[in-house]
Design a protein around this nucleic acid. Sequence first.
DNA 1: TCTAAATATCGTCATATGGCGATAGGTTTA
DNA 2: TAAACCTATCGCCATATGACGATATTTAGA
Lengths: 112, 112
Amino acid sequence: MTRKYVLDLRVKILNALSDPTRLEIIEYLFDGERCVCEILPAFKRSQSTISKHLNILYEAGILDRCIDGKRTLYRIKDSRVFDLLKAVDVLALEQITQLTEAGKLLEVAINK
Amino acid sequence: MTRKYVLDLRVKILNALSDPTRLEIIEYLFDGERCVCEILPAFKRSQSTISKHLNILYEAGILDRCIDGKRTLYRIKDSRVFDLLKAVDVLALEQITQLTEAGKLLEVAINK
DNA sequence: TCTAAATATCGTCATATGGCGATAGGTTTA
DNA sequence: TAAACCTATCGCCATATGACGATATTTAGA
């Protein structure tokens, strides 16, 4: 019972993170909360698009939001999301390292 | 230059992980390498579907594969992917905890 | 070599997703 | 109250994705 629920939650979180715009939004919010009107000019996307991305991150429990007058402030809900992203980078950098080393081996192989 | 490349790689990894079937495949391979014919009966999906999922995980650098006769063996390429998944669970479990505590508060609130 | 087995790939379909502009809703400010 | 602002939502489109059955490909075995 709980089993599938947890699986779906995992997928929801991972899915929310698997988009370049949303990853950049998360990075952008690293320093603290920002209202949408501050986030908007940092991205070359329409207001509706950014709003939708923010909502996806909110629904996945990655961002928290509060309404302040006519603005909505978004912020990282649990900073441990950065630990998650670091874990992604560990894998990503390993792959890049492998490619780089393969490149070096190739250089040696072709004497150059 | 490298910037966008790394971002795309991050997205590729996260995207590969954001599917319930693929997450289960990864769990299934925790104990070691398995051929497709072993993986298949563990999932209620067609052979072509599982094959495609395996390829997505392979392309994302999460699984490694080697051909052994008429079989293809798949295995976890870098076990640190489980650290990544643990980091996801940290967030997921936190959310569940919050819900549970909210539920307890609700129980108290309605005297039951 | 013929056959069966194990995988990958192709073609197709239904649904999901990211993108946008237009519009709605709510909140300050004039 | 009217106007300006800020944000969310709606409707639409093009593309991506998961699923399947059918087919192709490769290898082991008879």
